[in-house]
């Protein structure tokens, strides 16, 4: 006789997976998505498409772009300056965002703050995060006009929302006993924050800030084009949309890629050197 907890399938074999309903929902979803994908190809409009020529021409374009990069409309020095502008946009948005997010995160961590304050900040921040950065930039552009001000405000807004979530989760991971011990000595709230919470989470805070900086750099490139914030993104937009200069597009892409790699290497290096525990 089987125990009450043992489950068998229709063929009489013993189940070892829990949650049969979840599995079947996943299976059905995958199956219907596959069917939709296949049928979609049958209904596309294929007029005027010569697949061979399309592939050939794309290959030629890509080759011009990436194998023969050159600068035609501005100099090396200017290119460097524009990259600097883009990096500055990212730096300002990240640093201001991190500072503001730190305080908001303190009040939104459930183990450190009032339950209702924490809840309302979290909901507010989730709302901000749900709207893409570009939209925030365009919203701020109404007040500040298209340009770097709107771009920074928009990026700042989204950075704060993102970092509040990351920081507050780091704070919530702090060992409860440590907070209890400090409270039992008669320490105040700020004492606990500065001398227990901060030392135990500083590495997380810094690595989240770095990550956000990398994101902000690529967002700043896009904002240069979309919001006229200047920097290398704007040059990319001009080169591709105005001059149709594929070689310059290639050059700018390489420049952005290089900066991204340098940032990545620098951040891992810094982390290894200063925050290894």
């Amino acid at each position: 006789m089987d125990s009450v907890y043992l489950k068998r399938d229709k063929a009489g074999r013993i189940n070892i997976k829990a949650g049969n309903r979840v599995n079947s929902v996943i299976n059905w979803t995958v199956l219907s998505l596959t069917l939709l994908t296949v049928t979609a190809f049958l209904f596309f409009d294929y007029t005027g498409l010569e697949i061979g020529r399309a592939i050939m021409e794309t290959a030629v374009n890509l080759r011009t772009m990436f194998l023969q990069p050159s600068l035609n409309h501005f100099s090396w020095g200017e290119a460097l300056f524009q990259v600097g502008v883009t990096i500055s946009l990212a730096v300002i948005a990240t640093i201001l965002g991190a500072v503001i997010a730190f305080f908001l995160a303190l009040w939104s961590a459930v183990n450190l703050a009032n339950k209702w304050v924490s809840k309302s900040i979290k909901i507010f921040v989730a709302f901000i995060r749900a709207v893409p950065t570009v939209l925030w930039v365009l919203i701020f552009a109404i007040a500040a006009g298209l340009g770097s001000e709107a771009a920074i405000l928009g990026m700042l807004f989204h950075s704060i929302a993102y970092l509040v979530k990351a920081f507050s989760e780091a704070f919530e991971e702090v060992d409860k006993g440590m907070l209890e011990a400090l409270r039992s000595t008669g320490s105040g709230w700020w004492h606990t924050i500065v001398h227990a919470v901060l030392p135990s989470t500083s590495t997380y805070l810094l690595s989240w800030t770095f990550l956000r900086f990398e994101i902000n750099f690529s967002v700043a490139v896009a904002m240069g084009a979309a919001a006229g914030a200047g920097g290398i993104g704007f040059e990319l937009f001009m080169a591709s949309g105005f001059y149709f200069d594929l070689r310059e597009v290639g050059f700018i892409t390489y420049a952005i890629l290089l900066v991204a790699i340098v940032l990545e290497v620098a951040s891992t290096h810094l982390k290894k050197r200063y925050f290894s525990s």
Binding site: M178, A181, G186, S200
Partner: peptide, 17 residues
């Protein structure tokens, strides 16, 4: 609370300090 000390099973020190 300054007059009442407390000692814990898991010590509850700040490990990185």
């Amino acid at each position: 609370r300054t007059n009442i000390g407390m000692i814990f099973q898991h010590y509850n020190l700040v490990p990185r300090l």
